[in-house]
Design a protein around this nucleic acid. Structure first.
Lengths: 176, 176
DNA sequence: AATTCATTGTACCGATCGGTACAGACAGAG
DNA sequence: CTCTGTCTGTACCGATCGGTACAATGAATT
């Protein structure tokens, strides 16, 4: 039930995700919840973050780092990103945590997620022909652009903002 | 005391900004608080949002729209933005609200802020020589880039991420 | 001095917070 | 059937939530 748990944190933030909301979303009573997560809310959040990290490691970071065809790896990143964020209808849990007070408690997970994304993307961009420095800059622009597009799309309540911005970022990365 | 109030919402989000935190940050007891804001937390947030809107209207949107020299207006935007967000040490309250559950209650303010920013910037870019469509796209990229850079800077706990990204966005906008 | 009225601290409200205790439900093993 | 150990619903805990009531304060007006 980690996905449902994640959705609660995503929608209400760490502090806002009350146990009432969590039991409602998961169908699990407090008894089960604290049997599964003796560490309480903090452990729930930690495991959700770990699961997200695994997903991105598999679907995004690894392809970026390991694809023989770097450009294909980058394409896979954009595809997976679009799927994961439901084309702008979904928000980034790690981003939400990063902006809030929860960042400090989960600093490692939050820091690691963005840093490894940026790093993996820079590596792919470099192998795709960009100069080292240029690749670093572009990777920062792209990861920031994705996060910003999620903010804007949700602010406007219009997923198309995300799709448009993602398409332009892809073009800048050399995608067709 | 709207600025101090804003800082609490910025740091803890709307739901996370408890009256205890608010009284501590402002030095005002509940009595004064509810005398000044009979509408409670919702009214406090609304007035904070309105004050932020005014500041951006004066320091950012108006210069973008009205500057005789469009490029100078854009330069003023980047300068004001860097000052307001304390070179990446501060987060965007409207962005925080946009990502959270508070977006719906304050939908007008949240939507208006980003939309008018994007619109004013697009107008300036067009007057600075970009084609209409290109200006619209670039304005979306820049506003999203700023928001994303704030997320990344806070995630990494490193303001320089914001400064670097802001400088690159400025270059893309034609700034020197 | 008496009156008025905006301002404030404090006690208090019911509701909800995250978390704990624990008795019973339940399946599998002997 | 009995025992064992994993699960789970429920009652409850102290703390805190946003908000209200109200009496005391204090400055200005008459």
């Amino acid at each position: 039930m980690l996905p449902q748990l994640g959705e609660v944190f995503r929608t209400h933030g760490y502090e806002g995700a009350s146990l009432t909301l969590i039991t409602a979303a998961t169908g699990l009573g407090k008894g089960s919840l604290y049997h599964l997560f003796p560490g309480g809310k903090a452990q729930m959040a930690k495991e959700v973050l770990a699961e997200i990290d695994q997903w991105f490691e598999r679907e995004v970071f690894a392809p970026l780092r390991d694809s023989a065809d770097a450009q294909a790896g980058i394409g896979q990143m954009f595809k997976a990103t679009d799927v994961y964020f439901r084309s702008g209808r979904r928000v980034c849990l790690v981003g939400v945590f990063a902006l809030g007070a929860a960042r400090d408690e989960f600093a490692d997970a939050v820091h690691g997620y963005f840093d490894r994304w940026r790093e993996a993307l820079a590596s792919a961009l470099e192998r795709a022909g960009h100069a080292r420095g240029e690749a670093k800059e572009l990777s920062e622009d792209i990861v920031a652009g994705i996060q910003g597009a999620l903010v804007l799309a949700r602010a406007a309540d219009d997923p198309k903002v995300f799709s448009r911005t993602l398409a332009r970022l892809k073009r800048r990365a050399g995608g067709r």
